[in-house]
């Protein structure tokens, strides 16, 4: 049954793709070779589309493949399959963390991890900057945004909408 197969294959992707985002890409290429759900070219298009649509790439791809193969129920089956492994695992960890929050070892481990996460955040910012800031004009805009975000703490959604409008007006 196609729904079951979609669920099962994306369940495996969800279980083995550790690290999120682009880590799912090799798994998806694998799928495109095994099944006629989507072609390699469609996957490449999808990666491009995913960059300009909201939501995580893995979820977008599961929905896309599921829909192409078996309509909306297929999209639901594939996405549910993708999300289920982490849903179960995170729920277990959330329970454990609650219980052991004050354990000294857990606290030490977290104290080591936090600065590393800060480095990951900075790196993620750098990766996006490489795609976003392509000219001097872009850089000026970036500085203006950075300053206004720093001094007028409006919602991030507000800044994104402003940026979309600015992008259209100035043909970025």
């Amino acid at each position: 049954m196609i729904y079951w197969l979609l669920f099962y294959e994306f369940f495996k992707v969800g279980l083995f793709a550790i690290g999120g985002g682009l880590v799912t890409v090799p798994f998806l290429f694998d799928l495109s070779e095994h099944y006629a759900w989507f072609s390699t070219k469609e996957l490449a298009d999808m990666i491009a589309i995913a960059e300009s649509t909201p939501g995580p790439l893995g979820v977008n791809m599961a929905t896309f493949a599921g829909y192409k193969t078996a309509g909306i129920p297929g999209a639901v089956a594939a996405t549910f399959g993708l999300v289920l492994p982490s849903l179960v695992i995170i729920m277990i960890i959330a329970g454990l963390l609650k219980k052991f929050k004050d354990n000294p070892y857990v606290r030490q481990v977290l104290s080591g991890i936090r600065p590393a996460v800060m480095a990951l955040i900075l790196m993620a910012g750098y990766e996006i900057a490489r795609l976003a800031i392509l000219s001097f004009e872009n850089f000026i805009l970036f500085v203006l945004f950075a300053l206004s975000i720093r001094f007028y703490k409006a919602s991030p959604v507000f800044y994104m909408i402003v940026a979309a409008v600015v992008g259209i007006i100035f043909k970025l």
Partner: peptide, 27 residues
């Protein structure tokens, strides 16, 4: 064009969050 603009804002937003969290994350 809209998404080119959004990407610039997202870069600035991430940088801002980075500075917000700095004192709490790196001690």
């Amino acid at each position: 064009h809209a998404f080119a603009g959004i990407r610039i804002a997202v870069t600035a937003l991430i940088l801002n969050t980075f500075f917000d969290m700095w004192k709490k994350g790196v001690k």
